[in-house]
Amino acid sequence: MYDFTYHRPSSLEEAAKLLAGAEDGKILAGGHTLLPTLKQRLAQPSDLIDLSGIKELKGISEAGGAVVVGAMTPHGDVADSSVVKARIPALAHLASDIGDAQVRHRGTIGGSIANADPAADYPAAVVGLGATVKTNKREIAGGDFFKGLFETALDENELVVSVSFPVPEKAGYAKFANPASRYPIVGVMVAKTAGGVRVAVTGAGASAFRWTEAEQALSANWSADAIKNLTHGPDGLNSDIHASAEYRAHLIGVMARRALAAAG
């Protein structure tokens, strides 16, 4: 790890100012992705701005038909939250299956989506539930947030403040975990929302994407039969030592059907 200057601001404004003022500042949330990167000397930020001192960033609330999760809320809190479990059980389930207990106690939703790992779980929920990402500057629709491999719509000095998930009528999440890392090789969120049916896929492509054929089929007929024989093509999907594009394409169908079954 190279040297850096450590800051622990107590307000969002201060954090934004520190970030803007730093030569090459980086936000530190749970550190579960950032710290290993630093230890392996793959990044050399001048400043680390730790968000853990900003109380307003942590916590879960319900407002206007949506569940709002603060950026610094760890996965374990989402998994255990009575609000999330009651209103969006699929989201609680998704969070409960991220990493292991240690990871769930440190890793945060803000860090996860800002990092935009193609194999992260949360993007399936952000896209699949039609969430809204609130930053210190604006609101970004979930579907517009992920821009590619480790790329988001966030500007240089923009911070994730919270993620607002509209409560769906029904939703289910199914994940096929990488046997080594246990990140999703393919994860699919299927939801019936006020804005229509959404099927979002993570792990399979450069970033989370919607499977429109499945959405159309389920909009017409919300039942297992509707997507029983539906297949996703392998074009453009990830291919690596763990899974070929063809296998991932197949798993998208399987996981979508399982997510649908879980949604009920």
């Binding site: 990488n178 046997p179 080594a180 890392s181 990140y183 030592i241 763990h242």
Partner: peptide, 9 residues
Amino acid sequence: LTGSYMDYA
């Protein structure tokens, strides 16, 4: 290619 627990199961 399998130099860490991310890839070595």
